[in-house]
Protein backbone atom coordinates (compact mmCIF):
# COMPACT_ATOMS: atom_id res chain seq x y z
CA UNK A 1 0.00 0.00 0.00
CA UNK A 2 2.78 2.33 0.95
CA UNK A 3 4.60 1.31 -2.21
CA UNK A 4 1.51 2.10 -4.27
CA UNK A 5 1.19 5.52 -2.66
CA UNK A 6 4.82 6.23 -3.39
CA UNK A 7 4.45 5.26 -7.06
CA UNK A 8 1.50 7.61 -7.38
CA UNK A 9 3.55 10.43 -5.91
CA UNK A 10 6.34 9.67 -8.36
CA UNK A 11 3.91 9.78 -11.28
CA UNK A 12 2.52 13.13 -10.18
CA UNK A 13 5.95 14.60 -9.65
CA UNK A 14 7.26 13.35 -12.99
CA UNK A 15 4.24 14.91 -14.66
CA UNK A 16 5.07 18.15 -12.89
CA UNK A 17 8.64 18.01 -14.04
CA UNK A 18 7.64 17.50 -17.68
CA UNK A 19 4.83 20.02 -17.59
CA UNK A 20 5.09 23.43 -19.17
CA UNK A 21 6.33 26.46 -17.35
CA UNK A 22 3.77 28.64 -15.71
CA UNK A 23 4.71 32.26 -16.31
CA UNK A 24 3.47 33.46 -12.94
CA UNK A 25 5.93 31.16 -11.17
CA UNK A 26 8.90 32.39 -13.16
CA UNK A 27 11.67 33.68 -10.95
CA UNK A 28 14.62 35.17 -12.72
CA UNK A 29 18.11 34.25 -11.57
CA UNK A 30 21.08 36.01 -13.13
CA UNK A 31 24.60 34.66 -13.40
CA UNK A 32 26.84 36.24 -10.83
CA UNK A 33 30.57 36.57 -10.37
CA UNK A 34 32.26 37.97 -7.31
CA UNK A 35 35.61 38.88 -5.94
CA UNK A 36 35.93 38.09 -2.26
CA UNK A 37 38.46 39.77 0.00
CA UNK A 38 41.12 37.38 1.27
CA UNK A 39 42.23 39.02 4.50
CA UNK A 40 45.43 40.99 4.44
CA UNK A 41 46.85 40.43 7.87
CA UNK A 42 49.88 38.47 8.90
CA UNK A 43 51.23 37.24 12.21
CA UNK A 44 54.25 39.11 13.42
CA UNK A 45 56.92 38.81 16.06
CA UNK A 46 59.40 36.11 16.92
CA UNK A 47 58.40 32.74 15.50
CA UNK A 48 55.67 34.08 13.20
CA UNK A 49 57.13 32.72 9.96
CA UNK A 50 55.92 29.11 10.19
CA UNK A 51 52.45 30.37 11.18
CA UNK A 52 52.27 32.72 8.18
CA UNK A 53 53.72 30.12 5.83
CA UNK A 54 51.27 27.38 6.75
CA UNK A 55 48.10 28.63 8.41
CA UNK A 56 47.22 31.42 5.97
CA UNK A 57 46.89 29.00 3.06
CA UNK A 58 43.45 27.93 4.23
CA UNK A 59 42.23 30.85 6.33
CA UNK A 60 42.92 34.45 7.19
CA UNK A 61 44.32 35.40 10.58
CA UNK A 62 41.54 37.33 12.35
CA UNK A 63 39.70 34.48 14.05
CA UNK A 64 42.93 32.96 15.39
CA UNK A 65 43.79 36.28 16.99
CA UNK A 66 40.58 36.62 18.96
CA UNK A 67 40.54 33.14 20.46
CA UNK A 68 40.17 33.00 24.23
CA UNK A 69 43.22 32.07 26.26
CA UNK A 70 43.90 28.44 25.41
CA UNK A 71 46.35 25.98 26.89
CA UNK A 72 49.24 24.59 24.90
CA UNK A 73 47.37 21.26 24.81
CA UNK A 74 44.36 23.06 23.30
CA UNK A 75 46.48 24.66 20.60
CA UNK A 76 48.22 21.37 19.92
CA UNK A 77 44.83 19.73 19.44
CA UNK A 78 43.76 22.47 17.03
CA UNK A 79 46.96 22.34 14.98
CA UNK A 80 46.84 18.51 14.82
CA UNK A 81 43.21 18.69 13.67
CA UNK A 82 44.22 21.04 10.85
CA UNK A 83 46.85 18.51 9.77
CA UNK A 84 45.06 15.21 10.34
CA UNK A 85 41.46 16.11 9.51
CA UNK A 86 41.72 19.05 7.13
CA UNK A 87 44.95 17.75 5.55
CA UNK A 88 46.98 20.93 5.98
CA UNK A 89 50.40 20.03 4.49
CA UNK A 90 52.44 21.36 7.41
CA UNK A 91 56.11 20.21 7.37
CA UNK A 92 56.98 18.20 10.49
CA UNK A 93 59.59 20.73 11.57
CA UNK A 94 56.99 23.55 11.61
CA UNK A 95 54.42 21.81 13.82
CA UNK A 96 56.16 22.43 17.16
CA UNK A 97 57.03 26.07 16.41
CA UNK A 98 53.44 26.83 15.31
CA UNK A 99 52.05 25.41 18.55
CA UNK A 100 54.69 27.29 20.49
CA UNK A 101 53.89 30.61 18.80
CA UNK A 102 50.13 30.28 19.31
CA UNK A 103 50.46 29.19 22.95
CA UNK A 104 52.84 32.00 23.87
CA UNK A 105 51.06 34.91 22.30
CA UNK A 106 48.40 36.65 24.33
CA UNK A 107 45.10 36.52 22.47
CA UNK A 108 42.37 39.06 22.69
CA UNK A 109 39.71 37.07 24.53
CA UNK A 110 40.21 35.69 27.98
Amino acid sequence: MQRFAQSLTILCAVTLLTGTADAKDAFDLKSESFDLPTGDRTFIGAGADPVNNNCLTCHSAEMVMVQPKLSKANWEGIVKKMINVYKAPVPDEDVGPIIEYLSNHPTAGR
Partner: peptide
Amino acid sequence: NPFNFEKCGLTRRTLLGGAAL
Protein backbone atom coordinates in the same frame (compact mmCIF):
# COMPACT_ATOMS: atom_id res chain seq x y z
CA ASN B 1 45.13 43.70 19.31
CA PRO B 2 48.25 42.29 20.92
CA PHE B 3 49.26 40.59 17.68
CA ASN B 4 49.86 43.92 15.89
CA PHE B 5 48.59 42.72 12.54
CA GLU B 6 50.31 43.84 9.40
CA LYS B 7 48.36 44.43 6.26
CA CYS B 8 49.81 43.25 3.02
CA GLY B 9 46.98 44.01 0.61
CA LEU B 10 46.22 40.68 -1.06
CA THR B 11 42.91 39.89 -2.66
CA ARG B 12 41.84 36.41 -3.55
CA ARG B 13 41.98 37.28 -7.21
CA THR B 14 45.63 38.19 -6.99
CA LEU B 15 46.30 35.06 -4.98
CA LEU B 16 44.63 32.80 -7.49
CA GLY B 17 45.74 34.78 -10.50
CA GLY B 18 42.31 34.28 -12.02
CA ALA B 19 40.16 36.57 -14.09
CA ALA B 20 36.49 37.37 -13.83
CA LEU B 21 34.36 34.84 -15.66
